[in-house]
Nucleic acid binder design. Structure first.
Length: 572
RNA sequence: GAUCUCGUAGCUCAGCCGGUAGAGCAAUACACUUUUAAUGUAUGGGUCCUGGGUUCGAGUCCCAGCGGGAUCACCA
């Protein structure tokens, strides 16, 4: 049964047995009470202080009757000094010699009690008096080593393995845990900011009848009892506005959204957006509020409003630059979109080499121009304001210009981070905007919005003037943790599923009369299951198996052709 | 979805013009009571991603597939 295990795994499983034979439980149930951690023990160092710590053994340097090892706990590492006489004060040194030296492995969880001291090399360490095995690790972790200059050797770097086995990544790669600590600090800082303002955190449906609030392809599922299609939410916007209709002053939600679109280093099928809606406010207020909120988040999570991102330094100190979309396009292309017809925009797009087609309305064409020529130029936080009405079906028309909307997006490092409106609260205008979207859908735009009649009904009861803002949490975390891929800031990013390891069906072979000693050889010779046998010629099977036997010099009786014929008879 | 590129030991990687599968770390054994990429000696460990093809002979060349990465397109 150990055929599929690596030699190291077999050693560890054997160690498990030997540990049990010595009367030690390798997976004890009892609580292990610690009174300190690796980082605190070092920063509040007191010579001779007794500490009890728990964590993984990460590196052992065996020196005969003494061992140096690193203990890695939830916050960091501390060196252990394991001395035979210290741990086994009496005559019997077998716990040290047999268990610690030979049955403990890299990655095992242990608990220790000992006293703090400093080695002659100046390293704060624990002189261990008691050691308890807390959990055996029977699969070897990748061994990552670091030298005195901080150079890392044999790092566990393969992105596929790191993301698939994040639990391993977190153990062996120091910086990974820090990113996720920061992620939570960022989210906590936002929550704290909104709560201090007196706004209410709410939960709205993830499973929706109509996937509204954004333009994107949804994931579709089915509700059996109601026998209707249901959608995973692409946004929560329309539900939060219903709550403003219901009378809340301000509501916000950290919303896990799902979009059935491409995956790359800035897109994951599920991602997190924070959306907030506040009654009686407009988008000017929301710009001020967003600036303050981001400054607060940077200060809380990073201790500064200055953020290093690669070779760029970003400044989140308010006020941020503000520029209208029309002005931005004019500055970056020399083209004034004011009053231009769809045809004129279409021709301009073609003239600057953009790929356009006739499913694109005015809004989408302008968006193309902005995306291609303007977006990337805004590295420092910049509010882009006053988008064309065609691009923003949920946004109130601009108070001074009905062809524009009261909308802003916040650009940082050439990417959209936040999006906000003075929310459209005129139910009649909202319905006609939805109908425009339906026309786009009929033209072939599969990301146009559905009409949500219940949402219209809510607006008909009356929604106060409201400003709403959504912020891409994952992308914000990327910015603030200096990561270039979304996979680095999601604990478990979406991956193509691993192919199940096809366990050869040995029982089926047994059932047709394959002898015990040949059971495991069949799959190795290429016959993974009965179907493979069935499709092959008996003579080929016969030769293949005996060929394998010869090649590997197996000390078992050769298979006769009659045996193979016998198996095949039972198959049919 | 398109293009480029990669897939060899538990980890990081070599492997030339096609000719017996390699190193370091990890593992095992021995030595070593202040090491920290510990050290020294010895040993074991491989479906060279999968399937075809060319060839006397394929890790290597060709084709297809699977998986990863990068770039681009769409999207936040």
């Amino acid at each position: 049964m150990n055929a599929h295990l690596s030699p190291e795994e077999i050693v560890r499983r054997e160690a498990l047995v030997k540990i049990r034979e010595k009367g030690i439980d390798p997976f004890p149930a009892a609580e292990f009470v610690i009174n300190d951690n690796a980082v605190n023990a070092k920063s509040n160092y007191e010579e001779g202080k007794s500490v009890t710590l728990a964590g993984r053994i990460m590196n052992q340097r065996v020196m005969g009757k003494a061992i140096f090892a690193d203990l890695q706990d939830s916050v960091g590492k501390i060196q252990l000094y394991l001395n035979a006489d210290e741990i086994c004060p009496g005559e019997d040194k077998s716990f040290y010699n047999d268990v610690i030296k030979h049955l403990l492995h890299y990655g095992d969880f242990i608990g220790i009690t000992g006293v703090l001291f400093t080695t002659k090399m100046g390293e704060i360490s624990v002189r261990v008096q008691h050691l308890t095995l807390l959990a055996k690790s029977i699969k070897p972790l990748p061994v990552v080593k670091k030298d005195a200059e901080g150079n890392v050797y044999d790092a566990f770097t393969d992105p596929e393995n790191r993301y698939r086995m994040r639990y391993v990544d977190l153990v062996v790669n120091d910086k990974v845990k820090d990113t996720f600590f920061k992620r939570t600090q960022i989210i906590n800082a936002m929550r704290e900011f909104f709560n201090t303002s007196g706004y209410l955190e709410v939960d709205t449906p993830v499973l929706q009848n109509i996937p509204g609030g954004a333009a994107a392809r949804p994931f579709i599922t089915h509700h059996n009892a109601l026998d209707i299609p249901m959608y995973l939410r692409i946004a929560n916007e329309l539900y939060l506005k219903r709550l403003i209709v219901g009378g809340f002053e301000g509501v916000y939600e950290f919303s896990r959204n799902f979009r059935n679109e491409g995956m790359d280093r800035t897109h994951n099928p599920e991602f997190t957006v924070m959306e907030i809606y506040v009654a009686y406010k407009d988008y000017h207020w929301m710009m001020d509020y967003t600036e303050k909120m981001l400054a607060h988040v940077c200060q809380k999570a990073l201790g500064s409003t200055t953020v290093q991102l690669g070779d760029k330094t970003l400044h989140f100190q308010p006020p941020f630059k503000r520029i209208s979309m029309t002005q931005s396009i004019l500055e970056n292309t020399g083209f004034d979109i004011t009053g231009k017809s769809e045809h004129e925009l279409f021709e301009f797009c073609k003239s600057i080499g953009l790929e356009v087609n006739d499913t694109m309305g005015k809004g989408k064409l302008i968006d193309e121009i902005f995306g291609a020529k303007c977006e990337k130029t805004y590295i420092q936080p910049t509010f882009i304001t006053d988008y064309p009405v065609e691009m923003s079906p949920l946004c109130k028309r601009h108070r001074d210009n009905p062809s524009l909307t009261e909308r802003f997006e916040l650009m940082v490092n050439g990417k959209e981070i936040a999006n906000a409106y003075s929310e459209l609260n005129d139910p009649i205008d909202q319905l006609s905007r939805f109908e425009e979207q339906m026309k786009l859908m009929e033209r072939g735009d599969d990301e146009a919005m559905f009409i949500d009649h219940d949402f219209i009904r809510a607006l008909e009861y009356g929604m106060p003037p409201t400003s709403g803002m959504g912020i891409g949490v994952d992308r914000l975390v990327m910015l603030l943790t200096n990561n270039e891929t979304i996979q680095e800031v999601l604990l478990f990013p979406q991956m193509r599923p691993e192919k199940p390891i096809q366990g050869p069906d040995l029982n089926a072979f047994k059932a047709i009369g394959v002898p015990e000693e040949w059971l495991e050889i069949l799959p190795k010779a290429g016959y993974v299951d009965i179907a493979h046998l069935k499709d092959a010629k008996p003579t080929a099977i016969h030769q293949q198996l005996n060929g394998y036997r010869k090649k590997h010099k197996l000390e078992i009786a050769a298979i006769q052709l009659d045996d193979v014929l016998g198996w095949l008879q039972k198959v049919n």
